[in-house]
Amino acid sequence: MQSIPMTVRGEQLLRDELNHLKSVVRPQIVADIADAREHGDLKENAEYHAAREQQGFCEGRIQEIEAKLSTSQVIDVTKIENNGKVIFGTTVTICNVDTDEELKYRIVGDDEADIKSNLISVNSPIARGLIGKELDDTANIQTPNGAVEFEIIEVEYL
Results as ranks from 00 to 15, higher is better:
S3D: 03
I4G: 04
P5V: 04
P5T: 05
M6S: 00
T7V: 03
Q12H: 12
Q12T: 07
L14N: 08
D16N: 14
D16V: 08
N19Q: 14
H20C: 08
H20N: 15
H20P: 03
S23P: 07
P27Q: 11
A31Q: 09
D32M: 10
D32W: 00
I33L: 10
A34Q: 06
E38T: 15
H39I: 13
G40W: 10
G40M: 08
N45S: 13
E53R: 12
Q54D: 15
G56N: 15
F57C: 08
R61P: 05
Q63P: 03
Q63L: 13
I65S: 00
L69T: 06
S70I: 02
S70V: 00
S72M: 02
S72N: 03
S72K: 03
Q73S: 02
V74F: 02
T78H: 00
T78V: 07
N82H: 03
N82M: 02
K85F: 00
I87L: 09
G89V: 05
G89K: 06
T91E: 10
I94D: 05
N96K: 12
V97I: 11
V97W: 05
D98R: 13
E101G: 08
K104S: 15
Y105C: 00
D110G: 09
D110Y: 07
K116G: 10
K116I: 07
N118S: 12
L119W: 00
L119S: 01
L119R: 03
I120W: 04
S121A: 07
V122E: 08
I126C: 04
I126E: 02
I126T: 08
R128L: 06
R128E: 05
G129V: 01
L130E: 03
G132E: 00
G132V: 02
E134I: 01
E134Y: 01
L135T: 05
D136L: 11
T138P: 07
A139M: 09
T143L: 09
P144Y: 09
E154L: 14
V155M: 07
E156L: 15
Y157K: 14
L158K: 15
L158D: 14
